[in-house]
Design a protein around this nucleic acid. Structure first.
Lengths: 210, 210
DNA sequence: TGACAGCGTCAACACGGCGTCGAAAAGTGG
DNA sequence: CCACTTTTCGACGCCGTGTTGACGCTGTCA
């Protein structure tokens, strides 16, 4: 959890801080981050602009806190996932990818704003990068062990493959959520993504079950 | 730049405009777009800020012009590429992808700034989207014909596959150019990307030559 | 040749959002 | 009810954007 702004913890203060976050997420659902002013965030939380600075040091800090929540949710759900890559690889990968799609779709405003904010903000970049790193580590560990047991062919470095596939997911999911053009339908995204993962990891559509 | 001879107003204007573009690309090589002010662009071109507005309506318009040049270069080079997908599919895809990597690497400042600016600017988004569309069209045409001749398996919609792979390239290339973390080494990017393309299009590392 | 059109130029202004400061108000403990 | 801390905000200064009105230069033509 990222603690910023207020130093001491007071209940009413925490409520205010929460109200700001709720206001921000609500506004992000309908408007781009850049088009939201601190004034609006403050008004939405029933305070004045200078008072906003009592709770957060900047607009970016609000986004950072919001992103932190989303990432925590992902981590939580990653932990709950069954890891039966050996018995049914295709299903296991598809479930993982599907989980990401679900969580990011549920917080599309925050996700797309945060991803865009990486370019500008060091802390957002660091936080995103840290999570990305842990997903990449997870994927490349699995890929490596699939290669070791002979289920997946060598020929590409597991780490490089994992990075590329994770970056693809990030990009395709944001394109879908923002309904970019060209993009793909939200309904077919999961199928395409998991097909690409499976084909490029196993070199086949039906990796051997065990 | 002193004005003399029978130069018409238009020519000197074009030169000024060009100077602004050159200044912008130079600054973009060392600094983020947001950290460059119109004042700097103007000074770099030897004019005052208001005069800048005579040539461009906004900073974004400068970026748009720069992006346009890069895209034109890509289109030009796409046209020069041999299209021997039937005789050596792997080499043909690798060459195409390599060309993108090269051009974007040669203009990394512009590329990354433009991609970031999509979120904010409608025209940048439209221009990028148009090019992306044409690359996607090209890729999906080839994929479809590879599927038709039996070289590539069905199982995924060619268009969806093409979109996802192109988006992956965009994301991986920008990650590499910005030396993001996690990312992959610039030297291995081409190999990983083309492996993923080939495996996910053909379901194998060595698609049949003809 | 001189007067005039209009182009390129810029000083100065208006505006809007950000961040800060200091002081007032509200809350808390003795 | 006083002293002290927490919370709040009015008012200010700053910065970057975009606009406006006027000035000089240059090419043109009566």
């Amino acid at each position: 959890m990222v603690q910023r702004g207020r130093r001491t913890a007071k209940v009413s203060g925490d409520e205010r801080q929460d109200t700001i976050l709720i206001t921000a997420e609500a506004l992000l659902a309908e408007r781009a981050f850049d088009d939201i002013s601190i004034e609006e965030l403050a008004r939405g939380a029933g305070i004045s602009r200078p008072t906003f600075y009592f709770y957060f040091g900047s607009k970016d800090e609000v986004l950072l806190a919001l992103l932190d929540r989303v990432i925590t949710e992902v981590e939580h759900r990653v932990g709950d996932l069954p890891r039966d890559f050996e018995s049914d690889p295709a299903a296991a990968w598809t479930r993982s990818i599907g989980m990401f799609v679900e969580v990011f779709a549920a917080h599309r405003g925050v996700s797309t704003a945060a991803i865009a904010a990486r370019a500008r903000n060091e802390e957002v970049r660091a936080l995103w990068s840290k999570s990305m790193q842990s997903w990449v580590d997870f994927s490349s560990d699995v890929i490596r062990s699939e290669q070791a047991r002979g289920a997946a062919p060598e020929g590409v470095d597991a780490h490089d493959l994992a990075v590329s596939l994770n970056l693809m997911n990030e990009r395709v999911i944001t394109a879908v959520l923002d309904a970019e053009s060209p993009a793909i339908a939200e309904t077919s995204a999961l199928h395409v993504l998991s097909t690409i993962w499976i084909r490029s990891i196993y070199g086949s559509d039906n990796p051997g079950r065990r």
